[in-house]
Amino acid sequence: MRLVIIGGGILGTAHALAAVGRGHEVIHLEREVEARGATVRNFGLVWVSGRSANELEITLRSRRLWEEIGGKVPGVGFRPAGSLTLVRTEAELKVAEAAAGNASAAERGFELLEADKVRALNPALRGTFLAGLHCSQDAAVESRQALPALRRYMESTGRYQFFAGTEARTISNGTVTDDRGRAHTGDLVLVCPGAAHTGLTRELVGDMPVRRVRLQMMQTAPLGENLTTAIADGDSFRYYPGFQGPELDRLNAEEAQSFVAAQHKMQMLCVQRLHGGLTIGDTHEYEEPFNFDVDEAPYEYLTGVVEELLGRELPPVVRRWAGVYSQSIDPGTIVTRAQADERTWVVTGPGGRGMTLGPALGEETADLLNL
C-alpha cells in the first residue's frame, strides 16, 4: 500500500515507521522544515513508572520497541538508564512503599532504595532526601535528534519520502493537495496533527474529545558529571495514575504543594542529555487562551528542588521554552482516532505520553487498519 501521513512529530513518524516496517510506501508531509512542537519540547523520557494498570502493557511494549529501534537506529540515542523518584517526606515515602509493594512492581522494575543505595546507583545525588523509588524500566531517547535519525533510516529503504515545509490544504478520496498545489495520492491518509485541533483537522472530523496542555521547561549547560538515571521528585506522584491509592490520598490531604508548585501544577522531572546538560521541568496549564510568555517563578522553584537533590548548584540555564501537547479527555482512551472518510483517519491526543508510546501506538493503528 501507499500511505500519505500528515504531521512530522513523533506520532506521525511512529506511524510512518510502522508502515515502512510492514513493507508499505510512505509519503510524509510536515508543515515546518522540522517538527517544532511537543515532540522536541519534551524530556525524551520513555516513562513506564507511573502509567496506570490499563496502560502498562502497551507502555512496556513501546519500551521494548524503543530498545529495538535504538539497536537499529543508534542516532535516536536510546539508553535504558532507569529513573529515581526521590522522596523527602514521610508521606511521600508511604506512597513509594506502596508502589514498591504493588502487584505490578516487578513488571515496572520498582525497587525502593535507602538513601545510601540511591547515592551508590547515582553518585551525582549528594543532596537531601529520605529514599528513592528506582524504576529500572524507564529509559530515554534524544528528542531533538530522534526524528531526523528515524527519517534517514526509513529513507534508506527506498519506500519513504519526507516533504518538509509542506502544508496539507485539502484531502479528498485519498489525495492530499499541499500548499504548492502538488497532489499526493495514497491508499490511506493518516493525519497526525499534534495540538493543531483546528483548521484542516476540524474540517475533517469536527471537534474531538481532546484538549491542549501547555508546559514550561528549561535546559542547563553540561553538568560536568554523569546523572546516571533520570530523576523525579515526590510531587510527580500526584500526576501519574499508577500511584493512585490511599497513600496518595493521604499525601494530598496532609501535604499541600508549595504555592508556586500548586499554582502551576508542577512536578520535577530531570534527565541528562547526551551533551551533558540537564532538561528540567515541568508545569501544566489547561485553560486557554494560554500565555504567550513564560513565568519565572516555576524556573526558580525547579532550580531549588534540583539543587537540593543534587547537593550542588546547577550549571547556568542556557535556554527556556514552553510547549503545547494534545491530550485525550476520554478516560478510556490513550489516543483519539477519528475516521474522516473511507480512506482518511485523524490520530492525536496521547498527552504527555507521545514519546513514550509513539512506537506502540503506530503499531496499534497499523493493526487496527489491517496494514
Rank of each mutant, 00 (worst) to 15 (best):
G186F: 03
L56A: 01
I329V: 09
G224C: 12
A256I: 14
T356W: 03
G109S: 05
L65R: 06
V189S: 09
R63F: 02
S62P: 02
V95K: 01
D282F: 00
E92M: 03
G304W: 15
Q244F: 03
G224P: 13
L112S: 04
R169W: 04
A16D: 11
N252T: 12
T177F: 08
E55P: 14
S83E: 13
T175M: 03
T344V: 14
E111T: 03
P74R: 06
M217H: 11
Q216M: 06
A221W: 02
R180E: 12
A105F: 00
A139F: 08
F237D: 10
A196N: 07
G77C: 02
A53N: 11
Q137I: 06
T283Y: 03
I58V: 04
A120K: 03
A232K: 11
E155D: 12
E167I: 00
G158Y: 14
T201G: 01
G23P: 15
V26S: 14
T333N: 15
G23D: 11
V189K: 05
L269W: 13
G109D: 08
V40E: 11
E285W: 01
G358L: 06
Y153G: 09
G44E: 15
V191H: 02
L147D: 05
A96L: 04
E97L: 04
D282V: 00
L84W: 02
L278Y: 04
V205L: 06
L60F: 00
Q263W: 12
A256R: 11
L248M: 09
D207S: 03
R250A: 06
A140D: 10
M208N: 03
M268L: 13
W47A: 01
R63I: 11
R126P: 06
A230L: 13
L133D: 06
V48S: 01
T229H: 02
R119S: 01
L371P: 13
G132T: 09
V294D: 15
G323Y: 10
Q257D: 13
V260D: 15
E287V: 07
E300I: 03
A115G: 02
S258V: 07
E155T: 15
E287A: 09
W321Y: 10
L269G: 08
G70L: 08
A221M: 07
Y286T: 15
